[in-house]
Design a protein around this nucleic acid. Structure first.
Lengths: 354, 354
DNA sequence: ATCCTCCGTGTAAACGGTTTCACCTGAGTC
DNA sequence: GACTCAGGTGAAACCGTTTACACGGAGGAT
């Protein structure tokens, strides 16, 4: 690979001049620019990014730390991040990872100096020391932090309000016995959704929280299946069930189908997240829509703002609002299959390849 | 941020010694190691990755170039890449983009020196000059290259064979008039699948290719919808349709449902890719399974091997085999709904969060 | 003619590490 | 006691850039 010295020698100028040409400095004469550019082209030269970063202390890269296994939700967030980052001319340095906090610290260390900002998505991890110390010299945004954090900028989903709205919707459809399949304990998303559910019940005069109508899941599809089986085996059967996320809701619907329970006639089912699949279940799943890609986009914007910000003391905490995606599984549109089919057709995003 | 000099001064040793400690050199005494580690911990020091890369010429990062818009297919490939890269201790430097080849060249340049290897996914781009010149000084793997390429390692999907097998399966179910919804012209995936379809028809004694049974799409869901509408309006209606990818197949099935055509009784439908959604359509979509994550994983392995390889002259071209995912939409399992439901439940990968 | 400015360019010092080589010391050998 | 040897350490070169500063020459003002 040709270096700046090769170009300088070949063009008969100093390396400083070559550097100036590639940094659009206005102090170089037209002829010199043309000469240097020509030589660079011929030698197939381009400034080495690493060397550049070392001296300028800017890398034009954002770090992204993902949880160990990630599914559709995270893919979508990454896409949002990527799109936004690209707009600002940034790459993404991605590292999935991090079962334990030692693995996370390790990943963090190896990002050290390589990124201009960091986005951490680790819903179970409560921002350990490693992240905080990283945040002292580099802007960090926590996505869906596992707990309330003061040391970093954060951006999170309006879990409580989304759950509240959805349960209120079920109430408005006439449901009185509304069950919930909860997410994993110690997961903030799960806890906030549960809280929203409780609050909505209470607000509707249906509370306090009916323990017999709550069942535990862990955000995976199989756990939704098990949860549904457990729920329908209980003495008091609900008329509607609010499931902690869409993956579990799909499991719930499989279980119900196998048990001969018709959705939504016998039991209404609603989820949370609005993953792409939600539109394709039968019946299509009503769910709380989270603009996942926007979540990533906002994270990038927050980082960009943090870089410009003079006082690093003040941290920002953004909440991304949700909306209801009402389809057929809750019974609100029951029977209007065609409309649902039509909706399916127009909402999907195109793909480039196969 | 503390530098190596700070640690050296504080510990009363030279920077060389500190460096050795952090590179597990065996030539340092136990006491010195302990001392340096302690000081480093106290100062919160970790070697700067960029400076390290500059001198060692290794970055522990792989570049990933994506097409402009990407959907589920590419997310899945990235996940495979990420998983495999992580196993080797590598990060991913991701850059989506690249409508035109100038944008691609730009992205390529900014990766210059920042990565130890590069994976390019750009199905429409025919490996322009920029990629080739990059490949002269850094291993490059092309994923699903737009054409046959000799200059780089490549890895691609067995499009022809997958299509061939699927059409043969349809034939074995007794279908005689099998239509095809093609992918975009000039897309190699699309062309190879078309070729497989033709060859299978000919092999079954049903060829040559029936022009009246072919209709054009562009791999998007709406285009599948339009294609189906066009197809059923034609005089000779097929009994089965092989759709170029799953996204279009979903569009096809919406169109058929709206038109009152029952799948698979009136018309069998099969797709290609086995995207996650394929199991959730009604009826579940029979399709050609591509192990997408494995595709990414293989790409990483190829890069790792290329780095070890002495002679850079010999390029490898790997083909990833496909298999059939037979569900209900082709009629082969018609009526066995429970089994399908069960399958759905066990195949899905879990997600960590909501 | 002298002095200033301004423009274009070169020199050299960073940036934060790794690594080669030389040096020192103490132990072992004859 | 001189010599070898090996283990531990430090000095300095180097990686490929950017950039502060110096410098020289042209041109205008005095």
């Amino acid at each position: 690979m040709a270096t700046i010295r090769d170009v300088a020698r070949e063009a008969g100028v100093s390396i400083a001049t070559v550097s100036r040409v590639f940094n659009d400095s206005s102090l170089v004469s037209e002829e010199t620019i043309a000469l240097v550019r020509a030589v660079a082209e011929r030698l197939n030269y381009w400034p080495n990014g690493v060397a550049r970063s070392l001296i300028t202390n800017r890398t034009h890269a954002l770090g992204v730390l993902l949880p160990d296994i990630y599914g559709e939700f995270f893919s979508e967030v990454i896409r949002g991040i990527d799109l936004a980052a690209r707009k600002h001319g940034f790459h993404l340095l991605v590292s999935s990872s991090h079962a334990d906090s030692e693995a996370l610290a390790e990943a963090l260390r190896s990002m050290s100096g390589r990124v201009d900002g960091l986005i951490v998505m680790a819903p179970d991890v409560d921002a350990p020391l490693a992240i905080r110390s990283f945040a002292t010299h580099c802007p960090v945004v926590l996505l869906n932090p596992g707990q309330d954090v003061e040391d970093c900028d954060t951006i999170s989903v309006a879990n409580h309000d989304g759950a509240f709205e959805m349960v209120r919707h079920l109430v408005s459809l006439g449901h009185q016995r509304i069950a919930m399949v909860r997410g994993p304990a110690r997961n903030l998303d799960a806890e906030q959704r549960l809280q929203g559910y409780h609050d909505a019940l209470r607000a509707a005069g249906l509370g306090p929280a009916p323990a017999l109508l709550e069942v535990q899941g862990d955000f995976t599809e199989p756990s939704g299946y098990e949860a549904a089986m457990e729920l329908i085996a209980r003495p008091t059967r609900p008329t509607a069930v609010f499931v902690g996320n869409d993956h579990m809701a799909i499991g719930v619907m499989s279980a119900l189908r196998e048990s001969g329970i018709v959705v939504p006639d016998d039991l209404a089912v609603v989820g949370f997240d609005d993953i792409a699949m939600a539109r394709f279940t039968s019946p299509p799943l009503s769910t709380v829509r989270v603009n996942t890609a926007l979540l990533g986009e906002r994270a990038v914007e927050l980082l960009m703002r943090a870089k410009r910000r003079a006082a690093p003391g003040i941290k920002q905490h953004e909440v991304l609002p949700t909306s209801l995606a009402i389809r057929s599984s809750c019974g609100a549109r029951h029977g209007r299959r065609d409309a649902a089919g039509r909706q399916v057709r127009t909402r999907t995003t195109p793909t480039t390849s196969g």
